[in-house]
Design a protein around this nucleic acid. Structure first.
Lengths: 337, 337
DNA sequence: TTGAAAGCGCTACCAC
DNA sequence: GTGGTAGCGCTTTCAA
């Protein structure tokens, strides 16, 4: 069941079969039909490995994401879905690769062994060894999130600075004066996790500009972390009436902690931030937040990557999704509790 | 930078380099070292496509999951992570494929073009065209979930019947008499979604056996769906005091709906079910539930699949994770509200 | 212990 | 419009 067999049965040469399939050379209507019939009868499909070897391209893209532990978020899944579907639409497959920041092994599998024509890197650090590695090797890649100095690299990112700024502005408009910022985990921050740092910058800046006071808190990516974080915030600064969070996985716990401390959202505690729509809707009251457009980011990443593979210069996209008003923010209470 | 180049620089034949790499033939210590040095200097890595072609195996496994719409759940992501990490541990890559139940196209890409050595199928229907297809073609595969008559196929599944039964038993023990079952979406049910049907069977059976009364409700996989479902349950049967849910994505909405109707969990409404631990912990009060061991299921699936690829007979694993007591169930209120 | 060479299945160039 | 054939980069048999 290979191309030679098809050729024999259709009484043509292998090259003719190949050309009939690719259309890269005219083939007479009658032979084309004869070949087509044989192909259908035999259920022939060209072998991908052989084709990849001959053409020098695999028609496969790599998707590099970090191992669990800092477990996966909802957003990541939507992202994977978006990437895979967009790739399928362009006739590409997606090869998954779990790889830590500095991991050489998977880099070698993917790029060294030429398993893929290009790669998408998730969970970018401001200084990211993987990115440098790809840059040096001139291998086509796109990052989700961007490194500290992203010039000349292709990336798609959320504008965390602006988004957090908008959240702060929203709370300020409602009369809140003392805010807290719930960031991703300490470990992630230490590792230079891009969005965590840019979000925090946005918070610090906005608080200063608007003449508010505020403190930032790292927070583990789960319910327990959120609970602890809420407790810490209210212990440190009981006068806090507004919280901005970029930690969707801890959201449920954050709410629980706030409630446990005797506060009611949004009556005397407003919460807002950046999160996947599913998380924002799952909590009660639903979270006023900038919804992460994960699927769309996946699609964009594929587009940018295919451009790179085709040899075009690196492009980037900075997204600023709107803050969707739900039910978790309200005017600041008159008296600090 | 191919094997010939390495051979030339090390002044040996290509076969010797190949054998030095694979160890399938003894190579003298001195030549081995010489070859090793050249390889390191050049950063040589064997080309995966060429190797796949020559060896007749790709060292890649396919992971087939359905397109969004029926959006992805948390569990699926953990599952993908588990599969990918387990595969990496066995030196396999994972190729993602978004494919609907009856889709021929992706089947052909994966199996027809021999891109993978075996496949894992997610989101199984009781009567699943993909499964039949693979069965016929004698292609190695494992299903997550099992078809109606799974004999002779390899699968790993949660025992939804038993788990739902246990949840019902738990509520019964607490004195609840009127229960509701929150299932997955109507669309999923209609399509013959395996776990949804087996869960419902378990509910019907347990309710009957224990002499309780109960009704089952399909529910969309999101917060809104949960809210609507809660409203419907309480409108249909206000005397309901216990709910069993297998729909994790709607959990937040379900809680909200219950609260909106003036009930308090667990004082006068107990909720339990099957869910990813992350969802169970995110809601307040945290959900007493059987936690879906998604990562472990991923690992098991890989093990079963590799056995099949090696030619071993099909095996299966039915998992019954324990129901973890959290804070969402309590004794039934004395008076029906 | 090593080398030469025949594939693996497909593509694409060179002829006719 | 079609056929012959030399690769693509590796593995593995046969021979030495």
């Amino acid at each position: 069941m290979n191309i030679g067999e098809v050729a024999r049965r259709a009484k043509v040469s292998r090259s003719t079969v190949s050309y009939a399939l690719s259309g890269k050379r005219p083939v007479s209507e009658s032979t084309r039909r004869r070949i087509q019939r044989v192909i259908e009868e035999m259920g022939y499909r060209p072998n991908a490995s052989a084709r990849a070897l001959a053409r020098g391209e695999t028609r496969t893209l790599g998707l590099v994401f970090p191992p669990a532990g800092n477990h996966y978020t909802d957003m990541q899944l939507d992202f994977i879905g978006g990437v895979t579907e967009a790739a399928a639409g362009r006739d590409y497959d997606v090869l998954l690769s779990v790889a830590d920041a500095g991991e050489e092994r998977s880099f070698q599998r993917l790029i060294g062994e030429r398993r893929v024509d290009g790669a998408i890197l998730m969970e970018i650090r401001l200084h990211d060894a993987r990115v440098e590695r790809m840059r040096e090797s001139a291998f086509p890649f796109v990052t989700i999130g961007r490194i500290s100095d992203p010039d000349g690299t292709a990336w798609v990112d959320l504008d965390y600075r602006t988004l957090v700024r908008r959240c702060v502005q929203h709370l300020s408009d409602l009369g809140h004066r003392r805010l807290a910022f719930v960031n991703r985990s300490e470990a992630l921050l230490r590792s230079g996790y891009e969005s965590a740092h840019r979000g925090q910058d946005g918070f610090d800046l906005a608080v200063r500009e608007l003449g508010l006071s505020g403190a930032a808190y790292p927070c583990e990516d789960d319910a327990m972390g959120g609970e602890r974080c809420a407790a810490r915030i209210l212990a440190d600064h009981p006068e806090t009436t507004g919280i901005v969070t970029v930690n969707e996985a801890s959201l449920g716990g954050l709410y629980r902690g706030i409630t446990a401390a005797g506060r009611t959202i949004p009556r005397n505690m407003s919460v807002t931030g950046i999160a996947g729509a599913r998380w924002a809707d799952a909590v009660t009251p639903a979270l006023t937040a900038a919804d992460v457009p994960a699927r769309e980011m996946g699609r964009i990443a594929i587009d940018l990557l295919l451009e790179r593979i085709a040899g075009a210069p690196a492009r980037d996209r900075l997204l600023v999704p709107p803050v969707v008003l739900r039910a978790s923010t309200g005017t600041a209470p008159r008296l600090a509790p």
